[in-house]
C-alpha cells in the first residue's frame, strides 16, 4: 500500500525508531536512515562503539583528532544533549535537525545563542566574546592588536546590547540577528537536503519495509 506503517518495523539496534525520529524532526525516514550511515562512519572512526566521542567529532570536523578548538568543543557539548560525554544517534539527529534548511528560525536563534553563551549563564558576556575572538584570531593566524579587538567588541556591544548592561540576553540576540541575518548562516546546512544522495547505502540497511519520501 506504500505505507511504512503497514508492516511490523524493526528498530536500529540500540537506537530510537527512525520513524519516530522522522516524525519529531524535519527529516524523512529515509533521511534519518541516511544519517545513520553517516553516524556509523563517524562513530567508528576511533572506537567502533556506536557513540561519537569528542575525539571522533574533532576528527570529523578537522580530519585531525588532536586539534582542540573552542568552537568544536562547544558544538560537541550542545550536541551531547544527555550530557553523557558522548553523542548518541538520537542526539545527533535531533541536533542536526536545528541545522536543517526547514528548521524553525527560533530554534536556530536559540542554538546560536547557547553556542556563544560559553558558560551557560543565559547571557553572552563581553569576556566570552573576547575569548572567542582571540581563539578565532589564533586559529586563522590573523593578528590584531588588543586595542583593535577591544574596539570591535565595543562596537558590537553598542549594536547588540540594547540595554547597555554589558551582556547580551536572548531577546537582544534575537533582535541583533534579525538585523544581521548573515550571523545565522552557520546554522543552516543545505547539505542536509541531499543526505540520501550522499549516503545511498542506507537503502541496503533500511529497517523500514518501504522507503517513503
Amino acid at each position: 500500500m506504500g505505507c511504512f506503517n503497514s508492516k511490523a518495523r524493526k528498530q536500529f539496534p540500540g537506537q530510537e525508531d527512525p520513524v519516530i525520529l522522522a516524525s519529531q524532526t524535519a527529516f524523512t525516514v529515509s533521511e534519518v536512515e541516511a544519517l545513520f550511515e553517516l553516524f556509523k562512519s563517524i562513530s567508528s572512526s576511533v572506537v567502533d562503539d556506536g557513540l561519537i566521542s569528542k575525539e571522533e567529532f574533532q576528527l570529523a570536523i578537522f580530519k585531525n583528532r588532536k586539534k582542540e578548538n573552542i568552537f568544536a568543543n562547544r558544538i560537541f557539548d550542545l550536541f551531547d544533549v544527555k550530557k553523557k560525554g558522548v553523542i548518541d544517534f538520537d542526539d545527533f539527529v535531533r541536533s542536526l535537525n536545528v541545522f536543517h534548511p526547514n528548521a524553525a528560525l527560533e530554534d536556530k536563534i536559540d542554538f546560536s545563542f547557547r553556542l556563544y553563551d560559553l558558560d551557560s549563564t543565559g547571557f553572552i558576556e563581553r569576556q566570552e566574546v573576547k575569548q572567542m575572538l582571540i581563539a578565532l584570531l589564533c586559529e586563522s593566524e590573523m593578528k590584531l592588536a588588543d586595542e583593535v579587538v577591544e574596539t570591535i567588541i565595543d562596537k558590537t556591544f553598542v549594536d547588540a546590547d540594547q540595554n547597555q548592561d554589558g551582556k547580551i540576553d536572548i531577546d537582544e540576540w534575537r533582535k541583533f540577528v534579525s538585523e544581521n541575518p548573515s550571523l545565522l548562516k552557520i546554522m543552516t546546512l543545505p547539505y542536509l537536503r541531499d543526505i540520501t544522495t550522499s549516503f545511498p547505502s542506507f537503502v541496503f540497511n533500511s529497517n523500514v519495509d518501504e522507503i517513503v519520501a
Binding site: L38, A60, I61, N69, T151, N180, Y191
Partner: peptide, 25 residues
C-alpha cells in the same frame, strides 16, 4: 577588513563552526 565586521561575523568564520566537514567522510 576585520575591523569593519562585528565580533560575531568574525567568530562565525571559525573552521570549528563549519559543520559541513562532518559530511566529508
Amino acid at each position: 577588513q576585520p575591523t569593519a565586521m562585528n565580533a560575531f561575523e568574525l567568530i562565525s568564520m571559525s573552521k570549528g563552526l563549519n559543520l559541513e566537514n562532518l559530511f566529508d567522510v
